[in-house]
Design a protein around this nucleic acid. Sequence first.
RNA 1: CGGGGUGUAGCGCAGCUGGUAGCGCGCCUGGUUUGGGACCAGGAUGCCGCAGGUUCGAUUCCUGUCACUCCGACCA
Length: 477
Amino acid sequence: MNNKKLVEAITPINEDFTQWYTDICLKAELVDYGAVKGCMILRPYGYAIWENITHIMDGMFKETGHENVAMPLFIPESLLQKEKDHVEGFAPEVAWVTIGGGEELEERMCVRPTSETLFCDHFAHVLHSWRDLPMLYNQWCSVVRWEKTTRPFLRSREFWWQEGHTIHETREEAIAETEQQLNAYADFCENYLKIPVIKGRKTDKEKFAGAEATYTIEAMMHDGKALQSATSHFFGDGFSRAFDVTFTGRDNTLQYPHQTSWGISTRIVGAIIMTHGDDEGLILPPAIAPIQVVIIPVASHKPGVLEKAAELKTRLKKFVRVKLDDSDNSPGWKFSQWEMKGVPLRLEIGPKDIEQNQCVLVRRDTREKTFVALDELETKIPELLNALADNIYKTALENRERRTVACTDMEQVLAAASGDNCFIKAMWCGDDACEQAMKDKAGLSSRCMPFEQEQISEVCPVCGKPAKSMVVWGKAY
RNA sequence: CGGGGUGUAGCGCAGCUGGUAGCGCGCCUGGUUUGGGACCAGGAUGCCGCAGGUUCGAUUCCUGUCACUCCGACCA
């Protein structure tokens, strides 16, 4: 431990979680701050993570018949205004363009905060017959919401995401689509990102502006706070009616289609950081890690070492994303640096190893070292990557379970809410006032009504009236 | 939007009872090193966040502003 280490060190995770988070975002070179408040620059390493996420998800969407499109960046005010709840929800946080080419515009336009209105306008143009349905569209883009408080990934004024927009002939079909996409998000988070999530439905208070129902996946971060990780909305025909989207049905009558939208954003990168990271820095799930194995030559000036390392890189490239760090830095520096950047596996190769035709593999999560014969790398590396993936999922799940409390009365709720952050499972009567009371008295917001319901008690802990459903409550990002 | 904190070299910071700046790390060059953040020697780098004000003179004092950050409110 010397001065250098102290200077470069990231804040310990249990000392100041938010500072730890910011340190990682900057020091692992994921983002930089842009010239405009709340606008982040995704640096190559951060973008590579997002890019891997987009590739996997894009494949999943296409597998289920979705097509990518690109919609305009601007929304004329009149268009945004068409759906009452929607505009009320978003108007306070949009950015407006009032001048173009030096001239005051006749009608101001907002920079899209989300594209429902644009899609609806477009659907109205291109939809004619039931034979045109369903239309299953998606776009990868950035959107702008003028947030007051901003943080890298978690809440930025501009963020990148995908937004799927679909229209269907029947209500049932649209509901099925909403559920299918929510499941896709949940599968992606659990299987690729190794983040355990709770699937459920939002209360009316928390649902999307203009939606009939909003479904969500909620994840718990290392500090016990909740992060809404993706949402899927069922609109019914509300937007269709507002935008006059119609088609001629099988019975030759004019009908309104049923609509959905669903999205996942760069916020999910924040979830990865806050779910899996530790005092040494990031821990990236192998599926989306830009570098899955980093090769660090030891005593690289000795004859044959760099050559051997390069040879291994060529071999490994065939089945993993690999980087050879042949920079001038000392091995110790490289170990720390790549650990901070969350690379799942490190491969050390030095003269002693070459003599014995072996190398050292070190797991990022446990830092466990294994000597591996060079001809076993093709089996051993995938094995260790899988073991790491399983372990970080397990760790995250244990954290959530340890911090989940079932409460039957307000006394328990208040006690739980005043301690460490946690998920609180409690029954709810369905009344807005009781939801608000949880916020006012305990500082808790409803995260969702999980699909997997449990009967914690018979009555709502706030008002004592018969309970309708179990809600997971928590403090949210 | 309210309250607190911070803006000085790439990063982390010091300095200033007013006289235009310094340390550590990093960076560049050369050499020695290399299995947990190496060492020696030499070198480069500053509109002291921005704008006003006070002053002979402001990085320093005052006002405003912007940015970052934390806490709250708001918010998907």
